[in-house]
Amino acid sequence: MNAFRLAGDMTHLLSIILLLHKIRAMKSCAGISLRTQELYVIVFVTRYVDLSMKYYSFYNSIMKIVFLGTSISIVWYMRYHKVVKQTYNKDVDTFRHIFLILPCFVLALLINRAFTVIEVLWTFSLYLEAVAILPQLVLLQRSRNIDNLTGNYVFLLGAYRAFYLLNWIYRFFIENHQVRWIPWLSGLLQTAIYADFFYYYIKSWKNREKLKLPA
């Protein structure tokens, strides 16, 4: 474990806690894409299949359980909670996430480190996580006014993978010089997808104005 990875995990955890807090406190999920949240559940389920089989550390296991639990409860709130689900506008959250899931799965079957169930699912989860934010970003572009919590949520979500990029640089040079193209390139793409959001987010923060993404 290194400081970059810990900072990344804490940023990731903070983003999810922030979203869960927004939904529970405001009893609203306005501006949040259910599609993206469902993709994250798929990412965590396919990535943590070895939770019950492989033990790395207490931290690793507890964080996996927290990520699984929080992401599933967010989807539960948005789909089934009697008050929250009324605030979900499915007419604007129209991104067909099957167009993300299928290509990522096929790619994981073709490009992976080993053709085993665990490894292919792990690879699939990395490819899918790289593009999982797209429905949320599309929804933000359609939203006239983005509330601060949602903006901060997306920013933290993007920042966590940027920390992971630093973690991979650190691990390559300091630890085992092991080349890991799949996480590296997926993480690079994931962070690049946030680039324009980061630009508008920082601009709105500097100019103290409302966050607005160009349509």
Partner: peptide, 10 residues
Amino acid sequence: FVDDLPHDEL
């Protein structure tokens, strides 16, 4: 080869 594919990151 296969076994030493650690998924030690979250």
